[in-house]
Design a binder for these strands. Structure first.
Lengths: 331, 331
DNA sequence: CTGTTAGCGCGTTCAT
DNA sequence: ATGAACGCGCTAACAG
């Protein structure tokens, strides 16, 4: 029921080339024929077949968004930022989750899209191991340090180290000396996870009057997170302040603490990371390191478009973070 | 750097037709040539060009997921369910958000996908107004009542009315007689929104000893939600129980109440709808009507695949809901 | 300014 | 069991 370029051409009494030009280089078509063809296209509700267009041009007007999971609000926000930015440019977005599929990258066929946005994908051996096969431009939402040999690609990232420093320093200045750190899942080998751990270690190297315990936590499974927090409490360090690597984990910790009748922030203070939308709804509302999650996605798209337009200069956008003091920390 | 079917054929000393058969109807190829071609494909890491395949077959192995927004956890969970189900079948997922783009449906080109999953898309005039142009199969995650003339399509939905009845009845049995209802945004004309409102009205038609106030609330903007809840409190009904149409709104209400020093559930009880993952993390944890959000997405995909396989019998999957009593209601 | 034509890569009759 | 040839719908040289 949908006609093709040939039929439009016949209807307008011109050749397919003219119709095609009408779409791609209207300035090269006589105003008169142009308007005539256009009215016919309008009337017949014509639009070029995307598959044919892709086959012919090699472009798909589609971008892939690759995240480890959609079960963490952080990645949802990233994806949301990408999607809206892409839609605004008339691009479609394919969404892929890696989950625990180890052969993910091998199965990914880049001919489906013009470019991709990749985030937080703990790649063993670094990005260079799996992403070097890709010739389509892509932007990584993560620290540039894991780029390896792919120094040519752009990144968008936040000051993790600084954020962690801010949180721990705040705790320290409030008099805390015993800390609990809830890291991401032990299986998370992303550069993001490793970098945050390093930042923690670095902090305590400079604050030898403190003790701390690190405990891996999962944000997918509530019971695991609570258990991890329990470990922290039953250990020898008896923390008075807990820092969680992301807000999902902080949520679990909060629940664990309150269940045990531990007052937050009175007895134990808590700070998370990411500032997901609902963290301000917790009670006590969660103090957290805020990053511009949505914006990261939007900017990544922006950088990707630069590439698509031919600008191959790699750009690294670093965003600052902010310590948002809400109710889970003492004033 | 990637070879095509022609080159593979030459390498194997056969024609392109044989290589193609090798992929699509291997049983029609001599075992010997089959294995030979396959090893070459393996070695050269060959896989057919998706665009060419689509152009030739008319299929894309891609499904569209259309939701109003990705800013509500509910839709994220839906999308997540769809995505994982699709990925398991080797399908890709395009994600579209309608936001407030009125011309969304007109711009949507169905040639990009083999089918679509549509959810909660308040379509003025019903689904039939905008979706009838689509010839690709699609499944609606919503009540069948809005299907209009498209009685041929499958749906997946939950018992909204029953859920609302459960919540309000629970409130009633606990002795509450003055109710506050926080509905979705006034602009939400989806069948879901309307249906929930009808269910509320229906309940109070049968419980004339109650008073209630309905107030539209937005889950995108916290301040609006809090203001809506404030309206409820400052009105004449002085509710002792508040029911929110979704958990995002309930979160805002919770915050509003606690800010004003109103104890939940002691002074005012609160029940939400959806059971988004973080609702159990609120404090008090949110009592809510739980729906199998992820599963709705998965099932929708399942029904869609039936269509793609040729089974045109419309199926309507109705899922039950459950009143999850947590801490925001009295025991 | 417009038309002809050759691909783009693959699926698929129809012969052989 | 295999190959030759056409069609899918469009873009881009090239010619006029």
């Amino acid at each position: 029921v949908r006609l093709n370029i040939r039929e439009i051409a016949d209807l307008a009494g011109v050749s397919v080339a003219t119709v095609s030009r009408c779409l791609n280089q209207p300035e090269k078509v006589a105003p008169k024929t142009l308007s005539k063809i256009r009215s016919i296209m309008e009337q017949k509700d014509y639009s070029p077949n995307p598959s044919a267009q892709s086959l012919s041009t090699g472009h798909t007007k589609t971008v892939a968004c690759v995240v480890p999971t959609l079960k963490n609000e952080y990645f949802n926000q990233l994806a949301e930022g990408c999607q809206s930015a892409l839609a605004a440019q008339g691009y479609r977005m394919l969404i892929y989750t890696m989950q625990d599929d180890v052969s993910f990258w091998e199965k990914l066929d880049q001919r489906h899209f013009d470019g991709m946005i990749v985030s937080g994908v703990g790649i063993p051996g670094g990005i260079s191991g799996k992403l070097e096969k890709f010739t389509v431009p892509f932007v990584v939402i993560d620290h540039p340090e894991e780029l390896g040999e792919r120094q040519d690609i752009s990144t968008v990232y936040v000051q993790d180290e600084a954020g962690i420093g801010m949180a721990l320093t705040h705790f320290y200045e409030k008099g805390n000396r015993r800390f609990g750190i809830l890291t991401g899942p032990a299986s998370d080998t992303s550069s993001l996870a490793k970098r945050r751990i390093r930042a923690v270690e670095e902090f305590f190297r400079r604050h030898t009057d403190c003790s701390f315990t690190m405990e891996p936590a999962d944000y997918t499974d509530l019971s695991l997170t609570e258990k991890a927090c329990g470990q922290l409490l039953s250990g020898t360090s008896h923390p008075t302040a807990i820092f969680a690597f992301n807000d999902m984990i902080a949520a679990g910790a909060l629940r664990c603490l309150l269940k045990r009748g531990i007052s937050v922030p009175k007895e134990i203070e808590l700070i998370g990371f990411d500032d997901i939308p609902l963290s301000s709804f917790f009670t006590p509302s969660l103090s957290t390191i805020a990053a511009p999650n949505r914006k990261l996605g939007e900017k990544a798209v922006e950088l990707l478009f630069r590439r698509l337009r031919g600008d191959t200069e790699p750009v690294h956008l670093l965003y600052g973070v902010e310590l948002l003091l809400r109710e889970s920390t003492r004033t």
